[in-house]
Amino acid sequence: MKKEGRKLIAKNKKALFNYFIIDKFETGMVLVGTEVKSLRIGNTHLKDAYAKVTNGEIFVYQMHIGPYPFAYYDNHDPLRPRKLLLHDYEIRKLYSKANEQGLSLIPLDVYFKDGKVKMTLALCKGKRLHDKRDSIRDRDNRRDLDRSRKENS
């Protein structure tokens, strides 16, 4: 029986604050059984995660998937590098842009799509301090506008 739809597991909120998103890619992940079970109970975070192309393959580093609590002897390493599944032309494109233009590969979210674990990988450019201040100012202005609309209603 195939599950339909998309179920969000984890989201990297700091990535939207720290980076300008240039392009997004949907990738598959190579995982072991206890990692998938741990993801099903929501035991993960993407706070410091990043991706890198090595030897024509792309890996995600520092993505923490906690140990599965019901596995006794065959549990996984929580911070091991995990291979991402992309087409060769997409990997070449990401490699060239990341190296030539100084862009970063940052995971935005992890989710189940039709029963498979997927990740949204973004090609990002880092924000400077004044860009972050602009983001904070915009967010505060939006919050004030919403608050005033709610009071007037």
Rank of each mutant, 00 (worst) to 15 (best):
V117P: 04
K11I: 12
R82V: 10
L86C: 02
H64G: 09
S148Q: 13
G42N: 13
V36G: 14
Y50G: 02
K37F: 09
Y73D: 14
D88N: 07
I22E: 09
R133N: 14
L31P: 06
D23L: 04
K150L: 10
P78H: 02
K150F: 13
H87M: 05
R149D: 09
A71Q: 10
R142N: 12
R137P: 07
G102K: 08
Y89C: 07
I58G: 08
F25C: 04
I136A: 07
F70C: 10
Y111R: 01
L103I: 12
D77W: 02
K13P: 08
L121M: 11
G102Q: 12
F20K: 11
K118L: 08
G56L: 10
G42F: 12
Y95C: 06
R143P: 06
K52T: 07
R40Y: 09
N18W: 04
R80H: 07
R143L: 15
K83R: 12
I106G: 01
P78S: 11
K14C: 10
R40W: 08
Y68H: 08
S135V: 11
T54F: 04
A51D: 00
E35M: 10
A122T: 08
N152V: 14
F25Y: 08
R149S: 08
N99M: 15
L39C: 14
N75D: 13
R143T: 12
P69Q: 01
S38Q: 11
K24N: 11
I106N: 01
E151S: 08
G56Y: 03
E57F: 09
E100F: 14
N99D: 14
D88R: 05
K132T: 09
H64M: 15
R137F: 03
V110W: 03
L105K: 10
R137A: 11
I136C: 07
K11H: 06
N152P: 01
A71E: 12
D144Y: 02
V32G: 04
I22A: 04
L39T: 10
I65A: 03
E26I: 08
G115N: 02
S104A: 15
K47P: 00
S135D: 14
K52W: 00
T44P: 05
L145W: 06
E151H: 07
I58T: 10
P107Y: 03
V110F: 03
R82K: 12
G33F: 02
K83F: 05
G126E: 13
F25R: 06
V117C: 05
D138K: 15
M29Q: 03
F70Y: 15
R128C: 02
D48H: 02
K37A: 12
R147K: 10
F112C: 02
Y89S: 14
E90C: 01
K125A: 02
Y50W: 05
E100Y: 14
V36C: 14
E57Y: 05
K118D: 06
T44F: 06
K116S: 09
V30W: 00
R133M: 15
L105G: 04
K97Q: 11
Y19N: 04
L79K: 04
I65C: 07
K83C: 02
K52F: 00
Y50T: 10
Q101D: 15
K150I: 14
E151W: 09
L84A: 04
H76G: 06
K116M: 09
R40S: 12
L145V: 11
L123I: 02
A15M: 05
R139G: 00
K125Q: 05
